[in-house]
């Protein structure tokens, strides 16, 4: 694939990351677009993580966690499902394709399921036009002037530093 699309995958340490690790040990190739972010549990993922990733340049963001009912921390993945649904509805209401943010579940013993999830996300994102984002640095202030703009949001500074170092 020619373009350098980026997919950020928030993976839970117990199942998804273990599945990813197993697939890497089996030398299963993954598309180069995917970047893994390790989370203790998908319940740790917040709508802020998902929206910030998309705002800062990711073309797609996926959350990979344990099978529903098998979360190692009891109900974290149920929370993640609801948060991903919420972000999808937010995106849809402002005109962004809701499928840019999706959740997948798998077991640690199912590395092919992780690989299939990544390939599916890659396929869907490649079929979408690039996401136009509002200009860099411009209009960071709230729209109606409520509160003074105090500079870059902390999330952007962290991700900006990481990208600058890459």
């Amino acid at each position: 694939m020619g373009d350098d699309r980026t997919i950020v995958a928030f993976c839970c340490r117990e199942c998804a990351y273990a599945a990813a690790d197993a697939s890497a040990n089996a030398r299963t190739p993954l598309p180069p677009t995917v970047r893994l972010v390790l989370m203790p549990c998908t319940g740790r993922v917040s709508p802020l993580h998902l929206l910030s990733a998309l705002a800062e340049g990711a073309d797609g963001v996926m959350v990979a966690g344990c099978l529903l009912g098998q979360c190692h921390y009891r109900e974290g993945n149920f929370n993640a499902v609801d948060r991903v649904a919420f972000v999808q509805r937010l995106l849809k209401s402002v005109g962004v394709e809701p499928d840019r943010c999706r959740m997948f579940t798998m077991s640690a013993g199912e590395p092919p399921k992780f690989v299939a999830a990544v390939h599916e996300m890659d396929r869907v994102i490649s079929g979408m036009p690039p996401l136009p984002r509002s200009g860099d640095g411009e209009s960071r202030a709230p729209r109606h002037g409520a509160g003074a703009a105090s500079g870059a949001a902390p999330a952007e500074e962290l991700l900006g530093a990481a990208r600058g170092a890459a």
């Binding site: 929206l51 705002a55 509805r89 402002v94 962004v96 509002s134 509160g147 105090s150």
Partner: peptide, 27 residues
Amino acid sequence: DAPDGSRRGELGAALRRLMQHEPDGPV
């Protein structure tokens, strides 16, 4: 419209960068 520096403000900043049009209703 959340104030800058608040949690909602950070989400709002990210959403403002992504939005293609004004929100078409409550979610």
